Amino acid sequence: MRILMSLLLLRSIQLTSCAPNALEARSTCCFQFYKKKIPLKLVVSFYRTESNCPMSAIVFRTAAGREFCMNPNTSWVNSHIAKVNSRTTTATTAKTLSTTV
């Protein structure tokens, strides 16, 4: 009986210690880069991995919700970032203009 109680206690401590990471939206760390070029039309957003991750990466999120770890030093990755940012800026500007007219 004591062994069972000890196991339950250890398991609850483990779940509690993991909970804050599970709640973070951007808790992904990359351990290798995806090697293929992602079509720009599939990329809806991106983020940079946290500084506590073992390697710096850009994570592209697709419309289907998939995430791909990309090398931030690749030229097409930086081009995609600029285009996604301009899409977001254009959409925000258009929305602002339509609400003020």
Rank of each mutant, 00 (worst) to 15 (best):
S75Q: 10
T49F: 00
Q32R: 13
V43R: 05
S45L: 01
A57T: 01
W76T: 03
Y34E: 10
M70W: 03
Q32N: 14
E24V: 03
S79Q: 14
V44G: 03
R66S: 13
S86Y: 02
K37M: 15
M70S: 02
A25H: 02
Y47M: 00
Y34L: 06
K35Q: 11
R2C: 02
N71D: 12
K36E: 09
M1C: 09
T62D: 05
V44R: 05
K41C: 14
T99D: 08
R48Y: 02
T96A: 10
T93W: 00
T93Q: 10
T100A: 14
S45F: 00
Q14C: 10
S12V: 01
P72A: 07
T93I: 14
V44A: 04
C53Q: 06
F33E: 03
W76P: 05
K35L: 13
Y34V: 12
V59E: 03
R87E: 08
L8T: 13
T49S: 06
N85F: 00
A64N: 15
E67Y: 00
C53F: 02
L9S: 11
T28H: 07
S45A: 10
L10D: 06
T28A: 10
Q32P: 02
F33K: 07
L23N: 09
L4V: 08
S86T: 04
R66M: 13
T28L: 04
R87G: 06
K83N: 08
E24C: 07
S98Y: 08
E24K: 08
F33N: 05
P39Y: 14
R2N: 09
L4T: 11
R11V: 04
C69I: 01
P20I: 04
L23I: 06
P72C: 03
T16K: 11
S12H: 12
K95D: 13
N21W: 04
T88R: 07
T100S: 12
N85W: 00
I58E: 15
